[in-house]
Simulated assay, not measured.
Amino acid sequence: MRLDKYICKSTELTRSEAKRSLKYGSIKVNGAVVKNAAFQVKEQDNVLLNDRELTPIGLRYIMMHKPADTICSNVDEALPSLLNLIEVEKWTELHIAGRLDADTTGLVLITDDGQWSHNVISPNKSCQKTYHVWLAEPIVENVKEQFEQGVQLNNEKELTRPAKLEILSEKEAMLSITEGKYHQVKRMFAAVGNKVVRLHREKIGNITLDEELEPGQWRYLTNDEVDQFH
């Protein structure tokens, strides 16, 4: 890791402030002053800022039970960002791996590991997401087969990828998809003449929303959960 990035990961300093500390000779690596921001810090290196040892914050992997009326954004807009609900250091470095609409609840994954989140959201990875869906109208008989074959969404050139629909009751189902098109679940049901009235994400890949988490609560992922996308 570059030395300036290492400093930022270990302190509240910005990149420009870290470079200023380097310029003034405030940083030592293994006892020697280093002023080169591009210096590569190895795992075993000892880094001091004004003789205080620095330890970088490790990569973080979080699951949250997203409540309604929050947005998957790093900043507040018309509604508050769900990141306001997380109290951790350097929360501004976190991002959401797989967004949900403001009115959709359920499993959200949050991290500062860009490659890991790419494995979650990249269409090429075909990561399955499972949603609990409540509908305005009864589900007609052939919808399951239509979703398995792919449906034509409005303003899309190609059919959706095959999706799995499990019907729970006449107006309730579980839908598993491997894409993440804009408003996809809502648009899929709209394409077959129905309307989603409530939507809740249960699962991403093999990671299932912890049933002990109330809306707005979060926890760090276990090592086994993190490894699902490494």
Rank of each mutant, 00 (worst) to 15 (best):
R2G: 07
R2W: 09
L3M: 03
K5A: 05
K9F: 08
K9L: 07
S10Q: 10
T14N: 10
R15P: 09
E17F: 01
E17T: 04
R20M: 02
L22W: 05
K23D: 11
S26F: 09
K28L: 14
A32E: 14
A32M: 14
V34L: 06
V34A: 03
K35C: 02
K42I: 11
E43V: 05
D45K: 10
N46T: 15
V47R: 00
N50E: 12
N50M: 08
D51R: 14
D51Y: 13
E53C: 08
P56M: 00
H65P: 11
A68F: 08
D69L: 14
D69C: 14
C72F: 06
C72D: 05
S73F: 02
D76Y: 10
L79R: 04
P80V: 06
S81D: 04
L82I: 12
L83G: 04
N84G: 07
N84M: 13
E87A: 09
V88Y: 06
E89C: 02
E93V: 04
H95R: 13
I96A: 00
R99M: 06
D103Q: 14
T104I: 06
G106Q: 00
L107M: 04
I110N: 02
D112N: 15
D113Y: 13
Q115M: 12
W116C: 07
H118E: 06
V120F: 03
P123S: 15
W134C: 00
W134H: 07
A136H: 15
I139H: 03
V140N: 02
E141W: 12
K144V: 12
K144I: 07
F147R: 01
E148Y: 09
G150M: 03
Q152G: 00
N154A: 07
N155G: 02
E156R: 03
L159E: 14
L159P: 09
P162L: 15
P162N: 10
L165Q: 08
E166M: 12
L168T: 04
E170Q: 13
E172Q: 11
S176A: 12
G180K: 14
K186T: 04
K186E: 09
A190S: 14
A191S: 15
V192I: 11
H200A: 00
R201N: 11
E202Q: 07
E202P: 04
I204R: 00
G205C: 13
I207P: 00
D210S: 06
E211A: 12
E211G: 05
E212L: 09
E214Y: 11
P215C: 10
Y220G: 00
E225Y: 04
E225L: 06
E225F: 07
V226G: 07
D227H: 11
H230C: 12
